[in-house]
């Protein structure tokens, strides 16, 4: 799951590392950090927003560890993959390492392949795959599609994208 966490750090050196280290320790994949140095809280602490991916079972333990080390966890929220798109790939999908193709999207941290249907009519015939990709927002979805376009191009797969649906009026 992708978590968005607001932390409050003391205004002394070394606090950011103190906050981020445990996330890595718990195998969290940090996707973004916003450090608002000039916006102090009434308590004199500095708010930091961190977005990371982590296994759900480890979240409570992580929060506890952060609090123990003096980092105040002000807010924890699950960042849902709100944008979604589906595409079709045609070509030698399996033989061009399908796992790698999916990995290229999943490893971004902001997008993932959440559905895959594959049709393989014969060994020498091109396969067809239907993929649903989810991402944190439309911007990240565009980035994920860019990655997929690049991968499809390199692996000589035909990528069929959906027409623009958000240009209104339909």
């Amino acid at each position: 799951m992708i978590i968005s966490m607001t932390l409050e750090l003391k205004d002394i050196p070394g606090q950011l590392v103190l906050a981020l280290e445990p996330i890595s320790e718990f195998q969290g994949n940090i996707m973004g950090v916003v450090h608002q140095h000039e916006e102090k809280t009434p308590r004199g602490t500095i708010p930091v927003q961190v977005m990371f991916e982590i296994e759900q079972s480890r979240l409570a333990e992580l929060t506890e560890r952060l609090e123990k080390s003096g980092v105040r966890v002000a807010r924890v929220g699950e960042e849902r993959l709100r944008s979604s798109v589906y595409v079709i790939l045609i070509g030698h999908i399996v033989h061009s390492d399908m796992g790698d193709t999916i990995d290229k999207i999943d490893s971004t941290g902001f997008a993932e392949v959440v559905e895959l249907s594959l049709s393989m009519p014969g060994i020498d015939k091109p396969s067809s795959a239907y993929l649903v990709i989810n991402a944190v927002s439309d911007r990240e979805l565009d980035k994920a599609l860019d990655i997929l376009r690049d991968v499809a191009n390199r692996k000589e797969l035909l990528l069929i994208e959906t027409i623009r649906l958000n240009s209104g009026g339909t």
């Binding site: 589906y86 045609i90 009519p121 091109p126 067809s128 239907y130 069929i160 623009r164 240009s167």
Partner: peptide
Amino acid sequence: TKITPEALELASNNNSVIKLVCEAV
């Protein structure tokens, strides 16, 4: 030329069709 019947079927199962679309945007 590379469109397969399977791709069209996958599209159809998901309430879509495949069309050769021209786009100037």
